[in-house]
Amino acid sequence: MGDNRSVASEFMRGITKDNPTFGLVLGLCPTLAVTTSVENGIGMAAGTLFVLVGSNMLVSLLRKEIPDSVRIPIELIVIATFVSIVDMGMEAFTPDIYAALGVYIPLIVVNCIVIGRAEAYALKNGVFYSIVDAFGIGTGFLLVLMLLGGIRELLGTGGIKLFGVQLVDFVSMLGYNPIGVMTLSSGAFLTIAVLMTIVNYRKILKAMKGG
């Protein structure tokens, strides 16, 4: 890594080029499973962000002490510790979201984004930039989950409800008829497939203009 990186560019890289879902295509299980509503998406992304920052920080601090041959078990234990903290914290403070997310909270342990960043970034970089990277990737994840959750909640239930406040309600405003399947598993696949098609289409257009 050269010295020409800046905090802002390292942060933005997690949202654009190395975006967990559309750039790196990692951590798809929670992305699809919990985005039945914006609120669940935010809960999941906040948990993942906390784990990412914690594990990137600790792995980066320990990077000179960790022997190369056992680095994956060590990373897994570091991550599992932070996941347990999130698990217990969410159960205590946000029981509704905890009940909705269920088994997917402990499954942050095997989220490829977290271990992927520990492997690819925190083992090679200093503490400060590792934390910046974690915040960038976590924010990218949050934006994707909010987008997916927003689309699915809006089409599936006809409105968006955030922390007990009804923000939009198309059912009473426009007489919209909710498409229930959007909150089921098929809706998740449909939403992500269409979004990825749009991303690919833009990449192809860009390549055609460039070449």
Binding site: V25, L26, G27, L28, C29, P30, L32, A33, L107, C112, S185, A188, F189
Partner: peptide, 11 residues
Amino acid sequence: VVQFLGLCSFV
């Protein structure tokens, strides 16, 4: 396809 567990290997 229903519970979204193990999607990384699925794709």
